[in-house]
Computed example of a mutant assay.
Amino acid sequence: MAPKQEFVRAGPLPGGVVSAVGYRAVRPGREGTRPLHRGLPSPYLTLIFSLDGPVVSGFTPDQATGSDAISTDVVVGGLHQSPAYVVQPDDETGIQLALHPLAARALLGVPAAELTGQLVTHGPDVLGRGAADLRCRLTEATDWDTRFAALADYLEKQLATHGDRPRPRPEVAEAWTWLARHRGAGTLRGLAAHVALSERRLSTLFRAETGATPKQAARLMRFEHAKAGIVRATAAGDGPDLARTAAACGYYDHSHLVRDFHQYTDLSPTAWLAEECRNIQAGGHRNGGG
Rank of each mutant, 00 (worst) to 15 (best):
R207H: 14
L191R: 02
E199D: 15
P240T: 07
V18K: 02
L191D: 00
A228D: 15
T142A: 03
F7V: 08
G190T: 10
K215P: 00
C136Q: 14
Q5D: 07
D133M: 09
H37Q: 09
H162K: 10
W272I: 03
S42I: 01
L36C: 10
T142Y: 01
D133V: 12
W144Y: 10
R222C: 04
L97V: 10
G250S: 02
A274H: 04
F206Y: 13
Y85K: 02
S71P: 00
R201D: 15
F148N: 05
Q5T: 13
T142Q: 07
D125A: 14
T161S: 06
H194S: 13
V195Q: 06
A104E: 07
P83I: 06
A84M: 13
A69H: 12
D266L: 03
T46K: 14
C277Q: 11
T234Y: 05
R222P: 03
A236G: 13
E6M: 08
V258Y: 10
L188K: 01
D90Q: 15
H285F: 15
G284M: 11
P214Q: 12
G290K: 01
I70L: 15
N279R: 13
G229F: 02
S82F: 09
A131K: 06
A152L: 01
L99S: 00
F59C: 01
G53Y: 12
D90A: 15
I70S: 05
E276M: 12
Y252K: 08
Q118M: 09
T121P: 06
L36V: 09
A113F: 11
S50G: 08
L155D: 05
T204L: 13
G66H: 10
G128P: 12
D143Y: 05
A180T: 12
K157I: 03
G15Q: 05
T142G: 04
V87N: 08
G15C: 06
